[in-house]
Design a protein around this nucleic acid. Sequence first.
DNA 1: ATTGACGTTTACGTTAACGTAAACGTCAAC
DNA 2: GTTGACGTTTACGTTAACGTAAACGTCAAT
Lengths: 133, 133
Amino acid sequence: MNATATNSADSYSISELAQEFGITTRTIRFYEDKGLISPERRGQTRVYSPEDRVRLKLILRGKRLGFSLDESREIIDMYDPAHGNVEQLNRLLQRIESKREQLRQQQRDIEKVLAQLDEATARTQAALQEHSN
Amino acid sequence: MNATATNSADSYSISELAQEFGITTRTIRFYEDKGLISPERRGQTRVYSPEDRVRLKLILRGKRLGFSLDESREIIDMYDPAHGNVEQLNRLLQRIESKREQLRQQQRDIEKVLAQLDEATARTQAALQEHSN
DNA sequence: ATTGACGTTTACGTTAACGTAAACGTCAAC
DNA sequence: GTTGACGTTTACGTTAACGTAAACGTCAAT
């Protein structure tokens, strides 16, 4: 009765996710190879949970920020309950702060480039003015 | 009389730039191969102007934002006087706006990830609390 | 005149992140 | 019963962005 949701519960096929995020199934399997996603199997077939979907979304977000898959994995791993000892937890806090600083740098970089683009727009419009004379 | 500025005027050697920006000379030559920088030659030796230095800085900024060298080149090329006809100038405005939109997306992404990191910090500190009991 | 520090060119090697193709299984539809 | 859509594994290919090594020139210092 529904074209997109063939399955019973809250799950997705690989091609559903591929289409939703505009990537290929090959890419999704590649992420699995790299240990970024671990879908269940119904026989041979991969079945993706909402959590898997979220992880995929986070990976692609990291990608847009120029993060490598390893970096994205790191950030994702920061999210779940830290199950380590005190030393590990403190190192985690360090890594988090380090990422935070990197992102702040990116924010500054973006501001600079946006300012550049403003100037570029101004100059281009000025050049267009010339043509109208 | 000066250790860093051997040359007469406002110019840099390849190793000076490499050291300043924390990259290798190989990398700088690679950028030249790709047509991103075009230093002058004093005989065989490359001599970099302040403009070359700025271009290098812009390349590295793009790199931090996850831009490819081609994308960085595009942005840099947007900066100089647009020497084309009206059609070209209008296409340039389009590309600029497109880049702007991409950067805005990155800003949103960064905000999301920063929020994630805040949560991660909170959970990690909570886990540390557990250990002190 | 040889040693270093710095520069050069040429060229093969490497890693990440997939693309692409082959060869096959499966299941509903015609 | 075969066609087509979707899934699978296996494996080789590709592009970007450098790394690394070889083999050499140059110039100041010892």
